[in-house]
């Protein structure tokens, strides 16, 4: 994986809303960026899948525990853009 152009925080947030919406079979608008992932009843297998896809999206290898350390879309996107 190579990082062609860095994703912005807004792009990552939008991508996560869409991906989680698909996973939970709800509209992306129903996913709130400040709501804790636990509130969406994401199990650890789903967290692993999202993290893998997110890694491909942002172009870097991510730890499977990432969603637990940054437990909202907003905090996760902020972390990913700040640690480049």
């Amino acid at each position: 994986m190579s990082e062609k152009q860095p994703r912005t925080s807004a792009e990552i947030e939008k991508w996560l809303c869409e991906t989680m919406g698909d996973l939970l079979d709800v509209s992306p608008e129903e996913i709130q960026i400040t709501t804790h992932f636990d509130s969406y009843s994401l199990d650890s297998s789903s967290a692993i899948s999202i993290t893998e896809m997110l890694g491909e999206y942002v172009g870097k290898s991510l730890e499977p525990t990432l969603l637990y350390d940054y437990p909202t879309i907003q905090s996760l996107a902020k972390h990913l853009t700040e640690t480049r």
Binding site: S44, A47, I48, P64, T65, Y68
Partner: peptide, 13 residues
Amino acid sequence: DQYLQLAMIGFHV
């Protein structure tokens, strides 16, 4: 690979 990741989460949290 799935087992290692799930267990990593379990011990981490």
